[in-house]
Design a protein around this nucleic acid. Structure first.
Length: 597
RNA sequence: CGGGAUGUAGCGCAGCUUGGUAGCGCGCCUGCUUUGGGAGCAGGAUGCCGUAGGUUCGAAUCCUAUCAUCCCGACCA
């Protein structure tokens, strides 16, 4: 490609819309343009990067025997109704673009493809003899993100590789799952990324085991918890840990205490001169189920610990059947106006006890009349603890479960924190890092196949639901994550494997016939040798070309300038800025050597 | 969805407090000079001041509504 004939526009100033380095750089360097919120045009350079990432992903997928296909992005509502996800995807997370066509049919743009692929499997897979199978595709996904951000990191339309495997049993699924783990590790390694595989929550997709592949970068949206021995790594949403030991309570006898102006843990600790680990705090949340029922949840947890909303949501989902519901639509800490809707009388906020009476809930349509009470193990194990009394300005000290309060069901809903002890080895402490989730693999099980009636006949002649796995890679997100992990003050530094071009020839003075002649010769020769090369033959000053070459991050820059008098050109490596004069005839071989091809 | 902010030339911004017919830098076009790290000089083009109402003799500026975009949060009493 000749830059003089290309639509190549770089920006000298940082676009105001961008916040993180990779987003700014991709905009400035002319890789992407914003078309709308969360919508981006992939310009020619970007498309080359994405094509390379796709190719690497495809090669690694094909190597495992997975088969590439292409499923429709426009999907009928009925498939989603069959799987039971239509409501959650159009209401709660509201992440699916859904609309009605002119025949009054409900359709949606695919945010993911479990339903479609399961419908295909339902049609085609009949016998265990056909198993296992693994289909994958690389295409644009649509998600109605509440807050798109950071360019390609969280867009409303983005490119994803999604694969789905079908098995006769869990053992077979695990084999493929492990293969995918290795395939993903190879993909990311080939793309030149530093990453970590972590245990993850499986979220709205569902299923049992899942792992996320996190590219480590400060701009990441996820918190990764890990131990230094490398034996544990998990998304904070999923992380399990041991809280620091509670300090023994200084209160040995049970009594009420006047505690004026202590509506926060901080004030209470100061007033009672106690340790926060001696206090049970009682947190009120409200969950809305898919049948429209709101349930008030009262959580007792040690006061130095926080509730992990994801873990709590999972627990509440398990309890949904008790309320005649299937899934959780929303979970939140109710604010003043939300409380007013159902409270029969003002709540003793800041002084709530585990036995807060159900009479606080006024008879309200679609509100369950009883609190759902849960206790986290950190609070359940306390003795002689301090907690509220449901009376303002008053706490109880030296309290104990059973004696003073009925112990609610115990569920682990605490959020892991830096400094906690690891489960597998309490001498290991939990550390934290920011990560960008670029891949996620799931053991789905039979969630979709059972719901949608995708069955096969096993060796014994029994009809059984297919056991499924699913595996995703955010292709466009991965490309931006690579930039986030590799740039300097001058611009992007692409890993060679996904750089849009390997080399760029800068002609300092295009009116010098010798410079142009050598450049043209190299341009042809290098491309023939498999070194993807662009020629900067624009009528610009040398400085402009150097700045642009650095900005767009091409790994090798060749300058047909001063050193030509010795029959040499200057070759500069983008990452290190190391420069070397090399005889014109040796350039190709030298670059191939550096590239390792 | 809650909070905060911003919409003025292709990009980055000033002007708005105190209303009087629009400005700077970069970029773009022309010419000359320059030519290895985003050149210099001279000349030039470019705006429904987000949109719609209102106030006023007069609105980028004041008022109201609306749309869009960005940021923070959506997590505890």
């Amino acid at each position: 490609m000749r830059l003089s004939k290309s639509l190549f526009v770089t920006l000298r100033e940082e676009p105001a819309e961008a916040e993180i380095p990779s987003h700014k750089l991709l905009l400035r360097a002319g890789y992407i343009r914003r078309i709308g919120s969360g919508l981006y045009a992939y310009l020619p350079l970007m498309w080359r990067v994405l094509t390379k990432v796709r190719q690497i992903v495809k090669e690694e997928m094909d190597a495992t025997g997975a088969q590439e296909c292409l499923l429709p992005q426009l999907q009928p509502a009925e498939l989603w109704q069959q799987s039971g996800r239509w409501d959650t995807y159009t209401q709660s997370e509201g992440i699916m673009f859904a609309f009605t066509d002119r025949q009054k049919r409900e359709v949606a743009l695919g945010p993911t493809h479990e339903e479609v692929v399961t419908a295909v499997a339902r049609d085609l897979i009949k016998s265990y003899r056909q198993l296992p199978q693994h289909l994958y595709q690389i295409q644009s996904k649509f998600r109605d993100e509440i807050r798109p951000r950071f360019g390609l990191m969280r867009g409303r339309e983005f490119i994803m590789k999604d694969g789905y495997s079908f098995h006769a049993d869990t053992e077979s699924l695990k084999v493929t799952y492990d293969e995918m783990h290795h395939a993903y590790s190879r993909m990311l390694t080939r793309c030149g990324l530093k990453f970590r595989a972590v245990d993850a929550d499986s979220g709205a997709i569902g299923g049992s085991g899942s792992q996320e592949f996190m590219v480590l970068a400060d701009a990441g949206e996820d918190d990764v918890m890990y131990t230094a021995d490398g034996k544990y790594a998990a998304n904070v949403e999923k992380a399990v840990s041991l809280a620091p030991e509670a300090v023994a309570s200084t209160f040995t006898s049970c009594e009420m205490k006047e505690t004026p102006n202590t509506n926060s843990i901080k004030k209470l600790v100061k007033f009672l001169e106690c340790d926060p680990t001696s206090i049970v705090k009682n947190v009120l949340q409200q969950v809305v189920y898919d049948n429209g029922l709101t349930v008030l949840v009262l959580i007792s947890i040690r006061s130095d610990r926080d509730v992990n909303q994801v873990k709590l949501t999972n627990e509440l989902s398990k309890l949904a059947a008790n309320y005649g519901a299937k899934t959780v639509i929303a979970l939140e800490v109710p604010d003043g106006t939300a409380i007013e809707k159902w409270a029969a009388k003002p709540l003793p906020l800041g002084y709530i006890a585990p036995d807060l009476g159900d009479e606080y809930i006024g008879a309200t349509p679609n509100v369950h009349p009883k609190f759902l009470r849960l206790v986290d193990p950190t609070a359940a194990s306390l003795t002689n603890f301090i907690t509220g009394t449901n009376e303002a300005e008053q706490h109880i000290v030296g309290a104990n479960w059973s004696t003073n309060f009925a112990l609610p069901p115990i569920v682990d809903i605490q959020k892991a924190q830096v400094g906690d002890r690891a489960i597998h080895d309490p001498s290991q402490l939990i550390e934290t890092a920011r990560g960008i989730e670029v891949g996620h693999i799931f053991q789905l099980g039979t969630k979709y196949s059972a719901a949608m009636g995708a069955t096969f006949t096993n060796e014994q002649g029994e009809e059984q639901p297919l056991v499924m796995g699913c595996y995703g890679v955010g292709v466009s997100r991965l490309a931006q994550a690579a930039v986030e992990q590799s740039y300097d003050k001058d611009g992007i530094i692409w890993p060679v494997a996904i750089a849009p071009y390997h080399a760029i020839i800068c002609v300092p003075n295009i009116s010098d016939p010798q410079q142009m002649e050598v450049a043209e010769r190299l341009y042809t020769e290098l491309n023939q040798m498999g070194i993807e090369t662009i020629l900067d033959d624009r009528d610009e000053r040398a400085g402009v070309k150097f700045k642009d070459a650095d900005l767009i991050g091409i790994p090798f820059r060749i300058v047909t300038g001063r050193s030509l008098k010795d029959g040499k050109v200057e070759v500069v490596q983008r990452a290190t800025k190391q420069s070397e004069d090399i005889a014109v005839g040796d350039v190709g071989a030298k670059i191939r050597e550096w590239m390792g091809i």
